[in-house]
Design a protein around this nucleic acid. Structure first.
Lengths: 140, 140
DNA sequence: CCCGCTCACTGGAATGATTCCAGATCAGCG
DNA sequence: CGCTGATCTGGAATCATTCCAGTGAGCGGG
């Protein structure tokens, strides 16, 4: 890839006009190590780093960063939501039916393949999302 | 289409090797009127038809019918699951970001467009699912 | 036509992810 | 260095869905 943002968390936060707090930088660090982490994973990582941190602090942080465009939220049906730092490029995901693990998938057909529905039912369509379902290497 | 099954609910159930019960036929009727109904919608319809019906009865029925292939379950992130009777053809959906309403979308590119991911990360990919997000006519 | 073996349904309680609330605390501008 | 509003704490609440144990109803065999 070209660049997976080697920018330190602090810079990212400042650049997005957000305050720099311990919880936020810790959350970004956690997501640098574990791409596609659940809120709970992040909570664990942040606590390991900082000690006592409340559940809400983490949810607030994840929401704030998602709204600011620093994170992308993925919500696979039947599994808790996960967050990733790869934003901007519209890539897709493979989700493991069994454990919920997620892998990145760059769009196979280059650009927006079936992105324009044949009949939009009067909906104002904004985005198309592709999810691949299968089994991860470990669960096979 | 060839046939959207004008078969009565009883036949469908029997054909799938399932017992014919009031709750099940009522649920199928409900989903004939309201395509893309939530479990709660179905519960309401079924109760209007039969009187007292427990929450679990409906969930059980929806699961049984889904497992039997008579229903398809749709789980849009952030909204309760919905069920539909159009199964077999692999069509996709438009989901309203605001109210969760759903519309059918036949695959624009005929067959499996970006169905083969460029890099499957070692996953055994089984299906690809496309979801369009936007605003329904009413919410615009 | 009746019997019994399952599977279906009832009602109530539990789960798990996420959110709401009210108050204490901290980042960083002026 | 003090303010002000954003952030964090802890606990309770919400919502969709599931688990559990007991009662009741389909339907195939006798």
């Amino acid at each position: 890839m070209t660049s997976t943002a080697p920018l330190p968390p602090e810079e990212l936060l400042r650049g997005a006009g957000l305050r720099v707090t311990a919880t936020r930088t810790a959350a970004l660090h956690a997501l640098e190590e574990t791409r596609h982490a659940t809120a709970d994973d992040v909570l664990g990582s942040v606590r390991a780093r900082l000690g006592t941190v409340s559940v809400q602090a983490v949810y607030d942080v994840l929401h704030a960063l998602t709204d600011a465009g620093l994170l992308r939220r993925i919500e696979p049906a039947g599994h808790p939501a996960r967050y990733e730092r790869r934003t901007g490029d519209n890539h897709h995901h493979v989700v493991c039916r069994s454990c919920g693990a997620i892998g990145d998938v760059d769009c196979a057909v280059g650009h927006a393949p079936c992105l324009t529905p044949s009949d939009d039912n009067g909906f104002a369509v904004e985005t198309a999302e592709v999810t691949y379902w299968g089994l991860c290497p470990r669960c096979r």
